[in-house]
Write a protein that binds this DNA or RNA. Structure first.
Lengths: 224, 224
DNA sequence: ACCTGAACACCGTTCAAGT
DNA sequence: ACCTGAACACCGTTCAAGT
């Protein structure tokens, strides 16, 4: 099954950027970013490692291409009839769905926005539109959109690393607390003791509600 | 200057965990996480790469140790006389200072809380205390603290990668907008056109204000 | 034009050896 | 006890060669 060197005969499947990036995304989704090496990627494609360099300049370009592909899936419904709150919620839900679909890639999605710039523009158009329609002045629109995106990135990262804000993380804190003298950290002990099972799961909607309430307050301050 | 094999004579500086981790942190701060290799770290210490393995089991342990060291610097002033808002602000400011002091490490700080668990407990005691004193019920304290931390992580990551929410990122968006037909993305164009130089810098305080206003609204809903 | 394959300068880590 | 050094199985990437 080893391919011979040289240009493949007609009928053979040619290597191309899309096939490479799709295989790379599968590798990352299945085994994490650290599993993405040029050599493993080539093996998955049934090809010599150097063949990839005909189509993409280097490994950074492979990762950037994967991020671009993932961002291209990012579609935010516009909901023009609705008020600003459901539109912001729709943006948040779409972004969270993207992050959950590719948890192993989330750091690069957060960090390398430039690679998905066209999808980012389209998404921001929706978010900025909702916030402008709410009645915020342009600088406030930018600040508020930044806050929403910062929160979404922080939440996505916490969710994908299975720690901050997630049940696993609090279990680790609880375990450490149990090891320490009972006099230490009284507030943490009181709060944790009062929580039920259900309270232990991170709550995306509850956190987003607080932000929306804060935006509402900003609107009243601005007009009052 | 090459060291001979064997146990160093008395008077020679012994390798130990602290010296290794300090050198590792310097490497990361100066040249990024990708510059941290066992071999370069050994070279910085003037030692054979394998000497490190006497003191730390593997590279993951080196990184975890560095994160622990950085978290150990994390001190949040308690401000017991103050109301909850300045106390939450103090927490936020301290966390942001930590992130800015070690921007190259921020991803590991965000992602590997377990390594800094003792400092994280102490910091959470302060944050939970402020929110509980504000009058929030335990589940609301947890949700709200999660929101604050998610935001801080998202902001720190955006700030350190020099993109999302930062001037550089918006310049990239603006450049891309200039390349596209003027009919596309009318809202983005209007908003960007209305911004001054000062509006282009990310504004930590303004974003935090919105969150505090949202918490305030939560308090009124709870008691009303 | 498109792919292969040897080679180079790096990695992290194991294992045996030096003092 | 603590460090060195050779060796192994990996990396990303350059350069020359095959068809």
């Amino acid at each position: 099954m080893v391919r011979k060197a040289g240009r493949p005969k007609a009928g053979q499947e040619l290597l191309n950027q899309e096939r490479i990036l799709t295989a790379a995304l599968h590798l990352v989704d299945a085994h994490g970013v650290e599993a993405l090496s040029m050599r493993r990627l080539a093996a998955a494609l049934g090809v010599d490692p150097m063949a990839i360099y005909r189509h993409l300049p280097d490994k950074r370009a492979v990762l950037a291409g994967v991020v671009r592909m993932v961002f291209a899936e990012f579609r935010v419904p516009n909901l023009p009839g609705e008020s600003w709150q459901p539109r912001v919620r729709a943006f948040a839900a779409a972004y969270r769905a993207l992050a959950r679909a590719h948890p192993n890639l989330i750091f690069y999605v957060v960090t390398d926005v430039e690679s998905g710039i066209d999808a980012v523009l389209a998404a921001n158009e929706v978010l900025y539109g909702a916030l402008a329609d709410a009645g915020l002045a342009p600088p406030a629109v930018v600040r508020t959109a930044d806050l929403v995106v910062d929160f979404l990135n922080g939440f996505a990262l916490a969710e994908s690393s299975g720690r901050l804000g997630q049940p696993g993380e609090r279990q680790a804190l609880q375990a450490r607390l149990d090891d320490l003298p009972t006099g230490q950290y009284p507030t943490l002990r009181t709060i944790f003791a009062a929580l039920t099972e259900a309270d232990l799961a991170g709550d995306f909607e509850a956190e987003l509600d607080i932000i929306l309430a804060g935006i509402e307050a900003l609107l009243h301050n601005q007009s009052g």
